[in-house]
Design a protein around this nucleic acid. Sequence first.
DNA 1: TGAAACTCTGCAATCCTTTGCAGAGCGCGT
DNA 2: ACGCGCTCTGCAAAGGATTGCAGAGTTTCA
Lengths: 332, 332
Amino acid sequence: MPVTIQDVAREAGVSVSTVSRAFTVPEMVRDETRHHVLATAERLGYRPNRAARGLITGKTGNLGVIVPDLSNPFFPNVLKGVQARAREADYAVFLADCDENATEEIALVQAMAKQVDGVILCSSRMSEAQLERVVGTTSLVLINRQVRNQPAVLMDTAGGMRQAAEHLAALGHRRVAYLSGPRASWSNRERRRGLRRAARQDIEVVELGPFAPRFEGGSHAADLALAEGVTAIIAYNDLMALGVMSRLADRGVSVPKEMSVVGFDDIPMAGMATPPLTTVSMQNERAGRAAVDLLVSLLNVTGAEAGDLRRGLECQLIVRASTAVPRDPTGR
Amino acid sequence: MPVTIQDVAREAGVSVSTVSRAFTVPEMVRDETRHHVLATAERLGYRPNRAARGLITGKTGNLGVIVPDLSNPFFPNVLKGVQARAREADYAVFLADCDENATEEIALVQAMAKQVDGVILCSSRMSEAQLERVVGTTSLVLINRQVRNQPAVLMDTAGGMRQAAEHLAALGHRRVAYLSGPRASWSNRERRRGLRRAARQDIEVVELGPFAPRFEGGSHAADLALAEGVTAIIAYNDLMALGVMSRLADRGVSVPKEMSVVGFDDIPMAGMATPPLTTVSMQNERAGRAAVDLLVSLLNVTGAEAGDLRRGLECQLIVRASTAVPRDPTGR
DNA sequence: TGAAACTCTGCAATCCTTTGCAGAGCGCGT
DNA sequence: ACGCGCTCTGCAAAGGATTGCAGAGTTTCA
């Protein structure tokens, strides 16, 4: 029932080759004929079958994106960027959620491989070795993961942490707690690294955790941080920061008067919390777009000269109301 | 470079037909041969090319899902359900975000049509007429949208509203505000309907709005509700409810002592607010799974007898700490 | 022993496009 | 009038898989 190139050819009174060329190499067919063909196609509602085209060109016009967990508020926004940019570049996108599971992730890459021109891996859960192995299955672009000279878009989370540390230092904080996220996570390592480096000079960092990178993890961590006598807390992510604030409120500790709190991610909720949370914003949607750009340019390159394989994205501290000058800079 | 069915055939010393059958109609090839073929395929890392298969079978093994806005926390969860169930049924899923734009949505359906066996439309932004028109382009399943006898999975939001109303009535509230969402939205109409019906007996509902279905819309609405002298507020969704609570806190109105607040959606943030928000939970992930089930069964049906084209999903009131007995049941 | 009845495998057509190659038609110079 | 060079179009193969049909081989039974 769907209309094929043959239908158009017959209706327009030309051969299929001509119809095909009218679409793919317009300058090769006479203006008059081309207009006629295109008009007929339009009238019949013809749209080339991408699968059939892919069979012969070797390009599918699709790309895949794999995320660890859709219900993590971090990912939908990068997905949105991927989606938007892909559509602009006339690619369709396959989505898969690997449920935080590396094995599943590998399976998904392999399942997708034949149907896509390339895959974007968001915060891959694979080990270094596993990643090395799937490289070559298809073109790969990583987001927030660094391995060998794989193409990647990396958020400068270390820089974000530096901004957070400088902000607290400028306010007069001297002893702050870092609430660590999952040990194995690349993001967590980067954040710790950025913080430690920035802190060296004038801030003492006491590191706690790891905690679950969720609201409950934050509630849990809050008490520990309180016992450490710090004046400020930097959480691995906003969810934890929110948990911290909630627990502090329960214990009657006022934020930011008695304790400053900084999050990371700038999830939509951050600005709506009481008090609105100071946090580091990461341009997720931009990251998604950048990944697509990178992938597409990779696909259009002849092979040899690859150009720049890395894209960096700045993070930005958003100062809201959860941070302030400490009452007693040395802790209570 | 990718390994094709021919490679397997050559390597296994059989014809391509046999290899094909070993995969698609195993009982048709002798056990011994089949094992040999399958083993060879495994060894070579062969995976059938779905596009090529689709060309001849007419089935692609893909389905599409279109959402209005990925950054709306409602959708990622249904997406997660779609994704998970699709994978179980061995379908890959195309994702698209139409940016709240009906025209774009239509274009996306058409662009997908050739590449998928069916499309799931989440809370479609199309008008009735537009929807009628795209029906037939491909198999369609709607989520939270009702039109003619199109297959759909519908959340019983009206029922959820009833629960909320009963809850407030039981606490002793007699006059409550409903903060309306977008007028054109099917969900909003359903929620109003459910509330009005449930309220008839013992609650007076004053309807305000429409407001933007976001945090800011809630802040805006809070003052108006306060002026109406109600003892409880039901918001179109959680985002608004959170905005209401934030604004009430600013104005020194204590929740739930002086004002009860009920949300809708049960977004992750709801339970983390202060106080934790009483809200209606909608099984988004289940909805996603149900939509896939419906679509798949639709595809496997011969054509004539279609069976049950509707799936209903119950909503459930989650009572947390933002609702309580009113100080003065008649308002202040 | 021979024929019938199966079971299994291979041939070749088919799905929808793209594309190399060759041919048709035309204009132009000689 | 002829041939050359263009431009444009058509033929047919190719791409990876499925499937109807027919043939090869084996078993069963008379």
